[in-house]
């Protein structure tokens, strides 16, 4: 919810980040089921970035901690599937975190490029 606004903010400021992204909106990042992350990695995406709301989350002040647990579970699933853990990332993105978001995307894009496509 909050991070979505932060990602909008990056656009509002015309901050460029790689366009090979797709953005999906969830009410709170703690809703993510770990298998969805694996599903994305098996269906055309090279990496999944989870933008957590941080302490501004209107639903859950501890949503970042909860989301971190989902990420831990996703990493375990990835290991079983032989997917590199570097493909899963998470950071708290606040409602005016446009620049940090764009930076995350640049770095993540670079790392994924080195890694190459998911072996499927």
């Amino acid at each position: 919810m909050i991070s979505y606004v932060g990602i909008d903010f990056a656009g509002l400021q015309h901050m460029h980040y790689p366009a090979t992204t797709s953005i999906m909106r969830l009410p709170c990042s703690s809703m993510i089921r770990p298998e969805w992350i694996i599903l994305a990695l098996k269906n055309g995406f090279d990496g999944v970035f989870v933008a957590a709301d941080g302490t501004d989350c209107p639903y859950l002040r501890d949503c970042t901690d909860r989301t971190a647990k989902r990420i831990d579970d996703a990493l375990k699933l990835a290991e079983k599937e032989g997917i590199e853990p570097q493909r899963i990332k998470m950071a708290a993105i606040c409602s005016v975190c446009g620049e940090p978001f764009a930076n995350h995307m640049h770095n993540f894009y670079r790392e994924l490029k080195e890694l190459g496509p998911v072996k499927r």
Partner: peptide, 15 residues
């Protein structure tokens, strides 16, 4: 708009 055209003015094809 916010998440495509405004963010990717440098890459119309991928946008």
């Amino acid at each position: 708009r916010e998440q495509v055209s405004w963010a990717h003015g440098n890459d119309p094809a991928e946008a």
